[in-house]
């Protein structure tokens, strides 16, 4: 026996189908958005749930800018974005007045925050391109909001939870060629090049580090 549901339920189906069957997923998604009243600004507050967040992931995935903006406005107005400044933690209370942020709904909202054009598809399409990695970062006290190799240079953006230019933090860069490297961008940052890795010491400040190859 087949049991029929509202096409609005396809907002979930399309989320999982998008990387595998994008054309069908898009048709389902468009129908679901219409059924959910997303052709215009939806009435707020939105009911706590995952549907609008998964719709936002796909709107960003497919570059549907107007829809993404509409969803973002409604989510901002409805889902109680909340900072814990001491811990540097961000969650959505969703107006549920619960002792812990609602995990499943927060998970979709966090995915929507991190989403971008084509990213949901790329995640399942192929493994991340292997590259020399930064390891032993003192997370969560220290984080990197940018960490990518661009034309042979490693671009790092340091984001300590608490800035203190008189203290340093240390991390390693592994699997890099043992050659001359330059480290620039944050004053007083230093490094030791060893046969197995590069050890970086940097003051606990916000800033951008560039790790650039020199001559052999």
């Amino acid at each position: 026996m087949h049991h029929k549901l509202s096409v609005a339920a396809a907002v979930t189906t399309s989320f999982y189908a998008a990387p595998q069957a994008p054309t069908d997923a898009r048709r389902l998604f468009d129908a679901a958005c219409t059924a959910l009243g997303l052709d215009a600004d939806p009435p707020t507050p939105l009911r706590a749930g995952r549907g609008h967040a998964s719709a936002l992931i796909l709107a960003k995935e497919w570059g549907l800018t107007e829809l993404a903006e509409r969803l973002t406005r409604a989510i901002e107005a409805s889902y109680e974005p909340t900072w814990d400044d001491d811990r540097g933690e961000f969650t959505w209370g969703m107006s549920l007045d619960e002792p812990h942020p609602r995990g499943q709904f927060n998970a979709f909202l966090a995915a929507a925050e991190a989403a971008g054009p084509g990213m949901w598809t790329r995640l399942s399409e192929a493994p991340l391109e292997p590259c020399p990695q930064v390891v032993d970062v003192d997370f969560p006290a220290v984080a990197l909001t940018r960490a990518e190799w661009v034309n042979g240079c490693l671009m790092l953006k340091l984001a300590p939870l608490v800035e203190d230019p008189n203290r340093t933090t240390t991390f390693r860069i592994v699997d890099v060629e043992p050659r001359l490297w330059y480290l620039t961008g944050i004053p007083n940052a230093t490094m030791d090049v060893t046969p197995s890795c590069v050890i970086v010491r940097v003051p606990l400040v916000h800033g951008t580090l560039e790790f650039t190859p020199g001559s052999y």
Partner: peptide, 16 residues
Amino acid sequence: YALGLMAHRTPAWTEP
């Protein structure tokens, strides 16, 4: 899901 997406934003720091 968010972890996978974030890894694509900082591909040289996947440790966390």
